[in-house]
Write a protein that binds this DNA or RNA. Structure first.
Length: 711
DNA sequence: AAATTGCATGTGTGT
DNA sequence: CACACATGCAATTTA
């Protein structure tokens, strides 16, 4: 809900006077402190004058005073007019108050100290009076930090480690999750005493800078709120729990009007909803608008997710009652070339445990943003990561000046990095880059061909950088080997893999990052294992033989889910006798004849051995008993109950009591929750994928026939 | 001299 | 043909 009034009710600041119009602002943003009374507030609207990187609400880097239009001292430092600076005798330039990295003392002139480079880069922007801040913990870590982004610092392994631990991260779990990564810091980290411009001051100084501000820490500012007109609202996912303890995927209409508020859409939420906030200057803002609008219009005019599959709608509503936290997966926009980096539309099924862990506190939204296969230059020593334009413009703050802004990113270990998000003019266009990524890339031991993923956790907007190693050495060794669409490997299970590298959130549990353990846990109903399996085992690429057969991973996922859903409806043909085969100590029923579709029913058995089959009427939802051997059509109602004429109308009472119904449903749940081992899943998916491929080929053939037949 | 920075150019892909 | 992007390269900065 938009509010342009200070949340402090005693604050006399008239909203219209201070924030009449402008950008919606979420939590912990630039204007998060009322400039009138200093109170923290949320959901306010930016002052209209806050439209540039020059002007706006920020903190004087030196005295900490909240300023409106201060002087730009450096890319990331701002100075209030009151402060004025002090002439420095040693460097002639104006003195900067900085915190000595060794002693922690504030120094009058930050230049070269003990061989360490501090000049202009030691941010003391955290000098916000403690009492003014009341920000939820989940709002602390933010993706973008336009002020604190000191570019020079020292990579201290101890700090990094401290930070990991300090964030409440279970290192063991993390390491287990990121089994790709080495358990220890890379040697070069240890050895490197060299100043690295990509390391954020907060990281460099460990907790030194955090302590003065308690939980607020180094991420006071929140820039990762994209103005509403920067973010086309495309669609969303609500990930909710099944009453079967199996998370269930719900898809909402992707064609929802852009103007329609959607709680589940982080990108493109209406004004007032916590979201991205971006500084744009008066004139520059217009420039930004210009550059953004075509994109936006593209979104409006071209819905990109026409196909919808709604799954599991019947089960959810009940189960969701009393269950506040939902992990919402917002749908990133996809347009232009960048769409290949945008992640597929489906979020993998996850377990309740993961769900809760992901939720952390209430209402966490995980927004998978995009991913990119690292090129040689991305992974090289230059430290510049080229961002897909569409993604950069969609998920990073609009920048009007080439210098851009510092952005804060958390990596898989919970370390925070500050990159410079900027652009280069390029053929009347822009080329967006993240600068200073080398240490991060190195810490993740990434090479050309590996994939980095970007996600965001809302609220708070923590930008998260994950990674995925190239699946085969060829990819890694030769980055010039073209990868499919530059963004996704064929058959890439990018979505299911996104989580594997997500760092723990503050207060969260790192164990959600189960990495490859998706395939190893025992209580996963089905979830991501299939896709993992595909990737891990290098399952045949759909479309590997022909470009015509090439299938976008999104579509593959979609197909997989529909198939998965169909599994509930598939049953052996009535007359079929299965052959029991044992694979990995698990028995499977193998049928010679293909399965048939039918309405889902529940079977019960009494101790006496008597079996019953139950079906629910589509019209009245009453449960009706059926003979065990009958197979219902997908649509079935009481009037079709030819087996019990006393209950062949919806008005007839149910045969079973409410309690029995509960037992029935419980039994049904248990059935759904049956444990499926990785081996079983592998096998099932293998079969399914074969079927899917066959289906695709068949479909294409049919389409070809139709197409050519019409010519 | 080496590293960094900013821009230009060539290539591949989508329309 | 337009656009995105990987990378080359010259200018600039730093050690």
């Amino acid at each position: 809900m938009a509010s342009n009034r200070c949340m402090n009710t005693s604050c006399p600041a008239p909203s219209s006077q201070h924030w009449t119009k402008g950008w919606p602002l979420g939590s912990a943003g630039f204007a998060n402190l009322c400039h009138n009374c200093g109170s923290a507030y949320e959901n306010l609207v930016f002052c209209d004058t806050y439209h540039s990187e020059e002007a706006g609400w920020r903190d004087c880097s030196f005295c900490g005073k909240r300023i409106h239009c201060g002087c730009i001292v450096s890319k990331s430092m701002f100075e209030c007019l009151d402060y004025g600076g002090i002439g420095c005798t040693s460097c002639v330039k104006r003195s900067r108050l900085g915190v000595d990295q060794n002693s922690g003392e504030t120094i009058g002139c930050a230049k070269m100290i003990d061989g360490l480079y501090y000049f202009d880069e030691v941010s003391v922007s955290h000098k916000i009076p403690k009492g003014l801040i009341s920000i939820r913990r989940d709002e602390i870590s933010n993706g973008f930090d336009a002020v604190t982004g000191g570019n020079v610092g020292l990579l201290r392994p101890a700090s990094v480690k401290d930070q990991v631990v300090g964030n409440g991260t279970n290192e063991e779990k993390l390491l287990q999750l990121c089994n790709i990564m080495e358990a220890n810091e890379p040697d070069h980290f240890q050895k490197s005493q060299r100043v690295d411009r990509s390391a954020s001051p907060a990281q460099n100084r460990g907790e030194n800078l955090r302590n003065p501000f308690g939980e607020v820490g180094s991420s006071f500012f929140n820039m990762n709120k994209i103005p509403v007109n920067c973010q086309p609202s495309v669609g969303s996912f609500t990930y909710s729990k099944l009453d079967t303890s199996r998370p269930h995927l719900e898809l909402k209409d992707m064609k929802e009007p852009l103007t329609q508020p959607s709680l589940n859409i982080t990108l493109g939420v209406p004004l007032g909803t916590p979201n991205f906030v971006v500084p744009c200057s008066g004139s520059a803002a217009q420039e930004d608008e210009k550059s953004i609008l075509p994109y936006q219009q593209g979104q409006r005019s071209r819905p990109i997710f026409p196909k919808l599959i709604k799954t599991g709608t019947t089960v959810n509503s009940e189960a969701r009652k009393g269950m506040a936290p939902l992990v919402r997966i917002a749908r990133p926009p996809a347009e232009g070339r960048g769409k290949n980096q945008l992640l597929p539309r489906y979020w993998p099924r996850i377990t309740d445990q993961e769900l809760e862990q992901l939720s952390g506190d209430l209402n966490s939204t995980i927004v998978p943003l995009f991913e990119k296969v690292l090129s040689a230059s991305d992974a090289g020593r230059i430290g510049r990561l080229v961002l897909p334009k569409a993604c950069a413009e969609a998920y990073f703050p609009p920048i009007s000046q080439s210098e851009g802004l510092p952005v804060r990113v958390q990596d898989v270990k919970g370390n925070e990095w500050t990159f410079q998000f900027r652009f280069w003019p390029n053929n009347n266009s822009r080329m967006y880059v993240l600068e200073g990524v080398t240490p991060c890339i190195q810490s993740m031991q990434l090479r050309a061909g590996d994939t980095v993923t970007f996600s965001r956790i809302d609220p708070g907007g923590q930008l998260v950088m994950g990674f995925r190693k190239a699946t085969n050495s060829t990819d890694v060794q030769d980055a010039k080997i073209p990868t499919l669409s530059n963004g996704s490997h064929p058959g890439d299970a990018s979505f299911s893999r996104v989580f594997q590298n997500l760092p723990s959130r503050a207060g969260g549990d790192a164990s959600l990052h189960k990495s490859e353990n998706f395939g190893g846990r025992s209580n996963d109903a089905s979830g991501q294992q299939p896709m993992l399996t595909m990737e891990k085992k290098g399952a045949r690429n759909i479309g590997s033989k022909s470009k015509r057969l090439l299938m976008h991973s999104e579509d593959a996922l979609e197909l997989r889910l529909t198939w998965e859903e169909a599994q509930d409806l598939l049953r052996p043909p009535p007359s079929a006798n299965p052959t029991i085969v044992t694979i990995d100590d698990h028995e499977f029923e193998e049928y010679d004849e293909p399965p048939v579709f039918g309405k889902r029913t529940i079977f019960t058995a009494r101790p006496t051995g008597e079996q019953k089959q139950w079906a629910q009427c589509d019209d009245c939802s009453k449960w009706r008993r059926l003979p065990v051997d009958v197979l219902l059509p997908p649509k079935w109602s009481c009037s079709d109950n030819v087996w019990d004429l006393s209950r062949c109308t919806c008005s007839a009472p149910e045969e079973i009591s409410t309690k029995e119904q509960e037992n029935l449903l419980r039994a049904s749940k248990a059935e759904v929750c049956q444990e499926r081992t990785p081996q079983m899943t592998d096998l099932i998916i293998k079969v399914q994928m074969q079927d899917i491929e066959s289906l695709i080929v068949l479909t294409l053939i049919i389409l070809d026939i139709r197409f050519f037949g019409n010519q």
